[in-house]
Simulated assay, not measured.
Amino acid sequence: MAIIKASESILSIMLMILLGSFLNSRHWFDGDCPNLLVKLVVNISLPALMIYNMMSNFGKDDLLTAGNALIVPSLSMLLCYLMSIFVAHILNINSSRRGAFRSMFFNSNTIFMGLPINMALFGEKSLPYVLFYYVVNSFFFWTLGVSEIKKDGTANGTHTPAKAVFSIDTVRKILSPPLIGLLAALMLILLNINLPDFLMDTLKNLGNLTTPLSMIFIGITISAVNIRNIRFNKEMAALLMGRFIIAPLTILLLSNVFYIPKLMRDVFVIQAAMPVMTNTAIISKAYGADSEYVAIMITLTTLAILLVIPLYMFVLNYI
């Protein structure tokens, strides 16, 4: 039953991705249209979704007992980051793409893919745990992840040496509109402030745009990749292992050390098993790293979840 439910959820997601790819092939999204979709999701629908669902599904008592919700994903990503350094060294990955490989190894697509998939699999009650994982994932990406990608730009001779990992720019990136929406929701919950029904309904309707717009954007991104440039190699195999085996397994192991509820554990496992973060391609392009290499990895890992997520749903159903 779990496999059927997971497969149906993934197929629904993939149909929206295919729609985005098809419409892009018909030139519906020329110019800045893809950027507009990203702006709508990141600045409008996603913050609205976070405020509405956090306030609908999370109480003050839940917040005060959520310490392990940050500890488990933090330790998992730190372990995966250290593992990525070791794997990149063993495989002797070229210095012009080594940083991107490390970043992709330990960071996952927690919002554009993770959020809608978890909502489809576990319902709205999963959202608070999705957001906790998102907070940690965002912090690690905009600090360690971006720092590693900058090194690739330096190796290519197209960017100045990387600055400090922690900076004002890093703080600004971490404090994105979705995270600000999350922090606002947390504050309202802690202060026992309830928003009026008309405002909650508005937030709900805006939030419902998140999944379809996100999937259409990913379809646009994938359709821009030249499939003929994809050649399976040891780097791809290592990245697939990192994304879909090592990262989820660290969550399972750590959940036995730090107690977390089963639903939280299951959500974290699915979040850890998500594809490469789409922001990696944007940052790689901005810093002169190998953005085409990153786009190929995003495509490969996104397609791979068709098999991965049903498998994990089957496993989680019996442990």
Rank of each mutant, 00 (worst) to 15 (best):
L300A: 08
Y129C: 05
G20V: 04
T210L: 11
W28T: 06
T250A: 09
I180K: 07
L303Q: 02
Q271E: 12
M83L: 14
S291G: 06
S255I: 05
Q271M: 11
S255D: 06
N279H: 09
F58S: 10
S84H: 10
A289W: 02
T110A: 14
D62A: 15
L249W: 09
L115G: 06
R98C: 10
Y81I: 06
S95L: 09
S291C: 07
Y318S: 15
V135R: 05
K204T: 11
A185P: 06
L82W: 12
P34A: 03
E124N: 13
L70Y: 12
D152Y: 04
V146I: 13
M215D: 00
S21M: 11
K151F: 08
H159Y: 11
L15C: 07
S74A: 15
N35C: 08
F232W: 11
Y133C: 07
I90N: 10
F166T: 07
N57R: 13
L64Y: 13
D201S: 14
I93V: 13
N24I: 02
L40D: 02
Y312G: 04
L209H: 10
T65L: 14
F139V: 14
L144S: 01
L11W: 08
L175D: 03
F132Y: 15
T170D: 04
P196S: 06
S138L: 11
E124W: 04
L316G: 08
T202M: 08
M264H: 09
L11K: 09
L15W: 09
G123V: 07
G219F: 00
I270Q: 03
V146N: 02
M313G: 11
A272V: 04
W142H: 03
A48L: 10
V315I: 15
V308A: 01
E124I: 06
L63T: 05
L191Y: 08
A304Q: 01
I319E: 04
F314S: 11
K150C: 12
I296S: 00
N192Q: 15
H159I: 06
N229Q: 06
L239K: 02
L263C: 09
A295W: 00
L253T: 13
L209W: 01
W28N: 08
T221V: 12
A237W: 11
N194E: 14
R26D: 04
E124V: 10
Y312H: 00
N317G: 05
F198M: 07
A100T: 14
M241E: 05
R228Y: 10
N279E: 08
V41Q: 04
I174A: 04
S167P: 09
D290K: 00
A48R: 03
K234V: 13
P128M: 06
L46G: 02
F132R: 07
L303G: 09
I298L: 02
P261H: 02
V294W: 02
L307G: 15
V135H: 03
S7K: 11
K173S: 13
G145M: 01
S56T: 14
L240V: 05
